[in-house]
Amino acid sequence: MIHEVLLWGLYAASVYMLLSVGLNMIFGVMKIVNFAHGELMILGAYITFSIATSLSLNPYLAIPISALFTAILGVAVERLCFRPILGTGKLNEILVGLALTYVFQNFAITAWGPNLRSLGSPYAALSILIGPVSLPFDYLMGIGITAAALLALFAFLRTESGLSFRGTSQDSEAAMLMGVRIGRVFALSFLIGSALAAVAGSLWAISGQMFNPFTGAHLGVRAFVVVILGGLGSIPGAMIASLILGLVETSVAFAFGGVWREAAAFLALTAVLILRPMGVFGGGPRYA
């Protein structure tokens, strides 16, 4: 039984990872936490749903298109909502994020209605035996896509544009003086973060979850916990924190019942922050 608990803890971690890495990237360069990240994720799932059903396409093939749309939306949000108020106080940025959750949730309801939707996978019945456990094919696809996206992200950060990215996150003023067009970098961070959120949302829906605009809230909160736990701006931190959170939550829910699951996540967060007030990997952004 223990190895099964561990396995599902790891799987939960893989779900948190894409979402929190994207959120953390935005924080890294812009120093803002986008409160509407969970809503972007659900919008991504809805767009995938619409493309897949209207073109009767394999949902996996619809994901890139959905990611593209969500990325464009993310850039628009950065330009229109966050950029103008940058530097006027953190609480203003929080408020804009909150306001955006209202806008996105209710836009989604207006567009898709309040009913619950599901993204059926053509491989739902397929499971693959790995050692002692059989894993559904959709989960393997999810883990594979997550890994590929993260690898691509790391590869990007090694390129020249990636360098300006890392530079901006370490010291945006210095980067600006060095000739980095930080406006572009800001937009790029939202572009990548939103695209990752859309991928995360679609994979989550394909794995057999029904959704409406309000079902993203739980995962959104988890992503924030992961980001804070790992240390703001640290992508390896977010990955390790996803693992910690996934394992802690799953074992607590197994041992003490589901009610303590969310509370345990926050107790763990509090305990870690008492010891390390800036998170596990806190104290300056790190990208590799």
Binding site: V96, A99, L100, T101, Y102
Partner: peptide, 9 residues
């Protein structure tokens, strides 16, 4: 809600 969000922003 959409209007309210836009008003806040």
């Amino acid at each position: 809600f959409i209007l309210f969000g836009i008003l806040l922003i």
